[in-house]
Design a protein around this nucleic acid. Structure first.
Lengths: 115, 115
DNA sequence: ATATTATATAAGTCAAAGCTTATACTCTAT
DNA sequence: ATAGAGTATAAGCTTTGACTTATATAATAT
């Protein structure tokens, strides 16, 4: 079903810029259904920890991510209260679940107590 | 209504990159209902002709625009056969029609035989 | 208090993006 | 054939973006 929520062109652009990077788009697809900590993303994407942190920061600054601290971990999940949520979900809905990259990333998922 | 069309994450990213610029997003919103020639865009956006041409080229290379030559003009319109059309329309649907920037740009629209 | 693990931030590098100016191409009119 | 208008492309400049390495912060465990 289509959402009726609209926003300014500038707001739409801000959201698009946040997710127009392959890593960040994939991150948002992942957190659509789960929450992940930084170390999990590092394993899944095979990128350095600072690179992952920086991507997460951009998504958080765009209001798309919610941060949840538990112990020494910080878990990130989709911010369902985001002003961009309708647009975001529409975009994510266009990614096929069978996407090879997406499945490759998910295949590398490890529990939090990873080492 | 929601479209069921999905594509690879890479394809979605390519589309998002094309429209994640304020000028290009606005261009796509404009060509949703009309076709425009380069000189019209120049007037509407108050940008140089090469800058406009370069934005149009990006959108065309992403498959979002159709080019139509008539006389010495080149008219650009939305490519309804684009593989990204469903995603694109979803995105554009989130821009409010009352958007100030959009209305400001539309207010500067002039007929083709402009000088 | 110290060490360890998880994460963030700072600073630097390199490539890409968006503009500019200058020039080339294309069509029309003379 | 030449000139002029509309548009594209090339080259250069400047800013931004995505990484790197190094360091700082925060929580946990000893």
């Amino acid at each position: 079903m289509e959402t009726l929520s609209t926003q300014s062109a500038a707001d739409v652009t801000a959201c698009l810029k946040a997710v127009s990077d392959p890593t960040r788009l994939m991150m948002m697809k992942l957190v659509e259904t789960n929450e992940y900590c930084v170390c999990q993303f590092v394993k899944m994407f095979g990128m350095s920890q600072p690179a992952i942190s920086q991507h997460l920061r951009k998504l958080k600054q765009a209001g798309l991510l919610k941060e949840n601290r538990r112990g020494q971990w910080r878990f990130y999940s989709m911010n369902k209260e985001s002003s961009h949520i309708a647009l975001l979900l529409d975009i994510l809905g266009h990614i096929e679940d069978s996407d090879a990259q997406l499945q490759a990333v998910r295949a590398k998922e490890k529990p939090v107590d990873c080492f």
